[in-house]
């Protein structure tokens, strides 16, 4: 059996030898389809372009002109301001490592749980799954003050651990539920064959299940990454010193008592979207590649 992903050269998403003899009507249909797809694409890419324009505008332009106008006099100063005022470098670094750590913890812990629930038979599995599902329904703001008290008691206020633990835990239910849908659909034959061969459970989990689930792992990693990267409430509540704040707080550095510097906020938003955009593009390829690796073509 495939030890690890080796054969990833198949490119299933290109139209290969399909359109040989298409009728006139089907061509028209495809044209129409592409028209819709492209229109939708414009709608979806537009926010990013808008954001870049936004970050180059002055406050006056942000609120006066049509939101579609180009910045008349690009305010590159917004970026300079963002880099020099406030500790954006520190915030950036904190965002990166806290996000990476939280995503890793969530995905691996959720995989363990999902594996145990779907691949093993035990009495309480339904109850455990239920606990996680209910966990997803709990509104965050209800837990905020008790959580603050808890961290305060154990001395984790103003400690990045409080952020990582909170982000990890609050994303676990969602991640487990997504994984669950996929695990249910995954063929069990391979794992069962491995059991026959006398593989230990750990070996099966790490060497068969995890590699097989790379597409869904990438999917949940992307979702977790976006959530953690944009997470705000925990950092604002549990962190007080500048040294542990993240980019989302950096954005609020430009919201004032009476005056808000929208251009600078735009610039911070643009800066903060670059790393997740790149990571997203990378992970997004993994979804497809992982498929090729996981499929049982032999």
């Amino acid at each position: 059996m495939s030890e690890l992903a080796t054969d990833r050269r198949t490119t299933p998403n290109l139209s290969a030898g399909e359109g040989s003899k298409k009728s006139y009507w089907s061509k028209l249909g495809y044209g129409f389809l592409y028209l819709i797809l492209s229109a939708f694409a414009v709608i979806q890419i537009y926010p990013l372009i808008w954001l870049v324009f936004f970050s180059l505008k002055s406050n006056q332009e942000v609120f006066g002109m049509s939101p579609f106008s180009l910045p008349q006099d690009p305010q590159w100063g917004n970026y300079v301001k963002v880099w020099t005022q406030g500790n954006i470098g520190v915030y950036f670094f904190n965002s990166v490592w806290m996000t990476v750590l939280s995503v890793f913890l969530t995905v691996i812990l959720a995989s363990f749980v999902t594996f145990a629930i779907t691949r093993m038979h035990w009495k309480l599995s339904g109850l455990v799954l239920g606990l996680f599902m209910v966990g997803y329904m709990i509104p965050l703001h209800s837990t905020l003050i008790p959580l603050f008290n808890f961290y305060n008691t154990i001395g984790l206020i103003d400690n990045p651990l409080s952020i990582i633990l909170s982000q990890t835990t609050f994303n676990l239910p969602l991640t487990i539920m997504i994984l669950l849908g996929f695990y249910k659909a995954f063929p069990r034959e391979i794992e069962e064959a491995a059991v026959m061969d006398g593989c230990s459970v750990h070996r099966i989990f790490f060497q068969i299940t995890l590699p097989m689930t790379i597409p869904v792992l990438s999917t949940t990693a992307i979702i977790n990454m976006i959530y953690n990267w944009n997470e705000f409430v925990f950092v604002n509540t549990f962190i007080s010193s500048d040294q542990w704040k993240t980019l989302t707080i950096g954005i609020n550095n430009f919201v004032g008592q009476y005056l808000t510097d929208w251009g600078a906020i735009g610039a911070t938003l643009v800066i903060s979207i670059v790393p997740i955009l790149l990571t997203f593009l990378f992970l997004s390829n993994k979804i497809v590649e992982g498929m090729a690796a996981g499929s049982v073509k032999g």
Binding site: L109, A110, F112, V113, F115, A116, I117, M120, W122, V128, L131, F132, G135, I138, S142, T143, L144, P146, L147, F150, L165, S166, T168, T169, F170, L172, P173, I176, V201, H202, F205
Partner: peptide, 23 residues
């Protein structure tokens, strides 16, 4: 049982302490 505990306990503990106790 040992493996089930090992696989679910860390996540379950986090869930109970950080979500269920507060709620």
């Amino acid at each position: 049982k040992y493996i089930i505990t090992l696989y679910t306990l860390p996540a379950l503990l986090l869930l109970l302490v950080l979500i269920y106790v507060p709620i």
